[in-house]
Design a protein around this nucleic acid. Structure first.
Ligand SMILES: [Mn+2]
Ligand SMILES: [Mn+2]
Ligand SMILES: [Mn+2]
Ligand SMILES: [Mn+2]
Lengths: 143, 143
DNA sequence: TCCCTGATTTAGGCATGGCTAAGTTAGTTA
DNA sequence: TAACTAACTTAGCCATGCCTAAATCAGGGA
């Protein structure tokens, strides 16, 4: 595994971990292995493994048996994926989709949205919010 | 590897292979290992491997050193993913995004769109086509 | 018919990201 | 302070997919 200065793109798994870790820190103040595992519905062993990898990649600081904190790089990535999640979710909510469907689809789609696409969907969402009539016409297709 | 009667969800890789195979068959009448490899930019060895797996899963019929044909199940899946690709692509084109960005994002997103979301985006696309004014207001954010 | 060569397959590896089972650690509690 | 236990780590596996290098096959030309 190279030193990973800044080049390599993050995988969907890495993004999901960082997103969840940030969320846990924001809601309960810390993110322990067991919390992350429960939240992502994977084993504690898998979390330990990934956390050690994220530490090696400089996305968080980890002390064995103790705890972890995101680095600036890690928090930046986490906020970025969180934003994609949030925006996509709002967009699909506007279309009247069932929240379970939204949660499922967004969790996958969020990893494949480039900045330009994100901006475009954001702009569209803004416009749609001002056009309830148009949105009403969409409801027939929802969920 | 279980018999795979019908239950297990297809992976993104499987969907990409099937989509490309169908496209090759539609454009040049057949899909050879070398064509699939070139088209997906992966090695011929990887294609042979996957093709044998798809045969085992009943998604296509494969004769070693000869050729392959999609089964009904395989063609159904292929048409399904092709449709998701097409629809997402049209939607993003409407938003004025650069085609390279679209191709890249769609290739990833298409694997995470459930039927309900697909219908909703389809309905939205239909409505947007009739509202050039609204779309014009979006162009500032594009690519 | 025999050979050449492009197409294909096989063999062996590697990275990612999961899992279970079996220890280890450390904070709480008696 | 000694032990209990929840949290954590380690060890060893597995599936998915992709790779390169080394065979093998098969169709067309000499
Ligand atoms: Mn996700
Ligand atoms: Mn997410
Ligand atoms: Mn794809
Ligand atoms: Mn596609």
């Amino acid at each position: 595994m190279p030193a990973k200065t800044s080049g390599s793109r993050s995988s969907a798994a890495v993004e999901d971990y960082l997103e969840r870790i940030l969320e846990l820190i924001n809601t309960k103040g810390y993110a322990r292995v067991v919390d992350i595992a429960t939240s992502l519905r994977i084993s504690q062993a898998s979390v330990t493994n990934m956390v050690q990898r994220l530490d090696a990649e400089g996305l968080l600081k980890y002390e064995k048996y103790r705890g972890l904190v995101l680095t600036i790089a890690g928090e930046t990535l986490a906020r970025n994926i969180a934003r994609r999640h949030e925006l996509l979710s709002e967009f699909l909510q506007l279309l009247g989709l069932d929240q379970r469907v939204i949660d499922h689809d967004v969790e996958g789609m969020e990893h494949h949205i480039s900045p330009a696409t994100l901006r475009a969907i954001e702009a569209l969402t803004d416009q749609l919010r001002r056009r309830p009539a148009l949105l009403a016409r969409l409801q027939g297709a929802a969920s």
